[in-house]
């Protein structure tokens, strides 16, 4: 049978859920960031699938949109890791559940 749009959507949904679960359950800040990355990638995949199987004039704008998502994701990871470093420096730990205290 032909590889249609549904195949990619199912794949994207599965990937999103795995990323979501990782983001929720991991104890390490970097682990959470990995989860978030996976979720973003899943969204990109579904977007590109739509652009391929949708009407042509909509295809270009979705690809531009995906470029922006990738840029934002990169910026987000950079700032997230910098935050993790600062948290480590003050709390000597970056495990998410041990830094529950918002201290001034």
């Amino acid at each position: 049978m032909i590889i249609g749009l549904e195949h990619y959507l199912v794949l994207g949904a599965l990937l999103f859920c795995i990323g979501f679960f990782i983001a929720l359950s991991k104890k390490n800040a970097v682990g959470v960031l990995i989860g978030v990355e996976l979720m973003l990638n899943a969204v990109n995949l579904t977007l590109i699938a739509f652009s391929r199987f949708g009407a042509t004039e909509v295809a270009l704008s979705t690809q531009v949109f995906v470029v922006f998502i990738i840029a934002v994701a990169a910026a987000e990871v950079a700032v997230g890791l910098a935050l993790a470093l600062v948290v480590y420096r003050n709390r000597q730990t970056i495990s998410v559940d041990r830094t529950t205290l918002l201290k001034g």
């Binding site: 890791l81 993790a84 480590y88």
Partner: peptide, 19 residues
Amino acid sequence: LMLFAIMLTPRAERDNSQN
């Protein structure tokens, strides 16, 4: 970038276990 971040935190923090 992530590998660098992991390298900057000591070995004790490299636990990837679930809560």
